[in-house]
């Protein structure tokens, strides 16, 4: 026979069934199936299974979503963080583009610092609304938290005391960041308002920076680099309050401000 039916392999049969076969190979596969009725039957059975799986499960696509999986049916409190993360996500893209255009003037530095505050803001928006699990390790285990994060971050971590500004430590958590592990500490005042302090390794080894300010919607942040760590203090409070607390954080870690 002219079509060399035995050159068709198992992977090509599956590709044929799944509609992913190189069109150039169609004639060869069809000839093979004509020459081997058992194989043709096997392919037909497999196709029936594909169809059967759709018959079994496609109806799920049209089911109304259960409330816990929809955004709009969430209560205001639950919905807001999702919306806010989306907003920061948009801002993040914008930040990336800006970082690119100013690349020629300032190098990678501005971009690296911008991702610091963006990651911090996203982590803030995600965890601050948590009622039951705002932190991974509670303030009652502060010593353990310090030891654990020091080990994971690979550098000495100190948790600032913001008691004089009216904020008590709730605890902290480990987070993923672009450059490796990051940490988030959460603080709360007497009215239940929360601030977060985000720390990540300063991969650029680019030296210290002054305080910088960023805002996305009603989330504000001050961020700076100090030796081997980048810091971002994030909150929904006014800029002056946030600046005051940021200086406290800096003093607590270093002495007088930058």
């Amino acid at each position: 026979m002219s079509h060399e039916p035995d050159t068709v392999d198992e992977a090509e049969l599956h590709a044929y069934i799944d509609g992913r076969l190189d069109p150039a190979r169609h004639p060869a596969v069809l000839a093979y199936l004509r020459a081997h009725p058992d194989e043709a039957q096997r392919c037909a059975d497999y196709q029936a299974i594909n169809q059967g799986l759709h018959d079994l499960f496609d109806a799920i696509l049209d089911e109304p979503l259960p409330a816990r999986l929809t955004f709009h049916s969430r209560s205001q409190r639950e919905w807001r963080p999702w919306l806010r993360v989306a907003a920061i996500g948009g801002w993040l893209t914008l930040g990336g583009v800006l970082g690119w255009t100013i690349h020629g003037y300032t190098g990678n530095r501005a971009l690296a610092d911008a991702t610091l505050v963006q990651q911090a803001m996203i982590a803030h928006a995600v965890y601050v609304p948590e009622v039951r699990h705002p932190v991974e390790v509670a303030a009652s285990q502060e010593q353990h938290l310090t030891t654990w994060l020091t080990k994971r971050m690979g550098t000495d971590i100190h948790i600032p005391n913001l008691g004089d500004d009216g904020y008590e430590l709730l605890g902290g958590r480990l987070l993923p960041a672009e450059s490796g592990p990051a940490a988030q500490f959460m603080y709360q005042d007497a009215h239940g308002r929360r601030l977060t302090l985000f720390l990540r390794r300063n991969a650029q080894h680019s030296g210290d920076t002054a305080f910088r300010f960023a805002q996305a919607g009603d989330i504000r942040g001050f961020y700076w680099v100090d030796r081997d760590l980048g810091y971002a203090l994030i909150g929904d409070v006014d800029k002056e309050t946030l600046a005051r607390v940021a200086h406290t954080v800096y003093r607590d870690l270093n002495g007088p401000g930058p």
Binding site: L53, L56, F57, D58, I60, L61, D62, E63, L65, L69, F71, W82, L83, V85, A86, A87, G89, G90, T93, L94, V97
Partner: peptide, 26 residues
Amino acid sequence: MSQTTGGLAELIAQQIPRLRRYARAL
């Protein structure tokens, strides 16, 4: 290029029915 406000939420929301189908079958 950029994700507008809620754009990411919309992108994720579009995938929920298919995620449910796969999870149920799995």
